[in-house]
Design a protein around this nucleic acid. Structure first.
Lengths: 150, 150
DNA sequence: GATGAAACTTAATTTTT
DNA sequence: AAAAATTAAGTTTCATC
């Protein structure tokens, strides 16, 4: 582990607050952890630079956007398919929101977001069209339990 | 669908920009979509009010925080366990970052984040300690492929 | 009903100590 | 790291289309 990634308890508390609310002001965060706004900003800048914080993102209710079907898709790939190739396959599909290589029967797990089941079907077919993809196994999301929609 | 949830193309573009960068200024977003900063703010406020945007969150590199093990855990529960009860089980464990009810063999899917494999084991045992939980099936994350760490 | 311009308020950021 | 000063952004008001 790089020495520049060393973080202390204050950093952890700042990160935790930003995970909950990425738009909290530096002053608010500072009040919570006992620092001035500029001090918090410097730490946040460093946390971003060192790759501890990887980004700030709005969470959306997919259904409100007309994306009614979310699914977790397990990908079974050819024996020696490198992770980079799986990443390329995933990146080619805008429906893929997240992708991970995992232990277990499947080689990768993806979360996909589609407008409807027909769109999901097309996405799965498109994924399986790649020669390295042997099979997909999907679990359609019925409801999100956590984190609760605030 | 509630009429207040109706969103147009501009809203979609604003949401897409905020999904990428939750800290983009209203002026920056406005420049991208052809609106003034106040107009963007009003739309964002409305998108939050109507539940389209559910929050703003910092993404972190779990490993940098000493959370070296992430896993997807399938939960097999007693036949008539309602989603709300699964939500309660999930909420009791701070290691559970996300939880969904899903179609397929398992009843629910969770993403958990732990410091190490021993911590993961304790979390799984704790989940199985609940009478409604029959079995867990885990896939440990080897690497995140998407979204790329910017 | 939503917009943009301007005024005003608050926060971000830089500089200094 | 904090305080003060500066710059930029958020927010409200209001006239307009």
């Amino acid at each position: 582990m790089d020495d520049s990634l060393r973080i202390d308890g204050l950093d952890r508390r700042i990160v935790a607050l930003l995970e909950q609310n990425a738009r909290a002001s530096f002053a608010t965060i500072g009040a919570a952890v006992g620092l001035s706004a500029p001090a918090v900003k410097r730490r946040v800048d460093r946390l971003i630079e060192t790759g501890v914080i990887t980004g700030f993102h709005a969470s959306v209710n997919p259904r409100a956007l007309g994306h009614d079907v979310s699914a977790f898709v397990e990908l079974y790939t050819e024996g020696r398919t490198p992770a980079l190739e799986i990443a390329r396959i995933a990146a080619r599909h805008p429906e893929v929101q997240e992708a991970y290589t995992v232990t277990g029967d499947a080689n990768a797990l993806m979360r996909v977001r589609t407008t409807d089941t027909s769109h999901l079907e097309k996405t799965l077919e498109s994924l399986r069209a790649h020669p390295a993809v042997l099979q997909t196994k999907s679990s359609v999301v019925l409801s999100r339990l956590l984190p609760p929609i605030s």
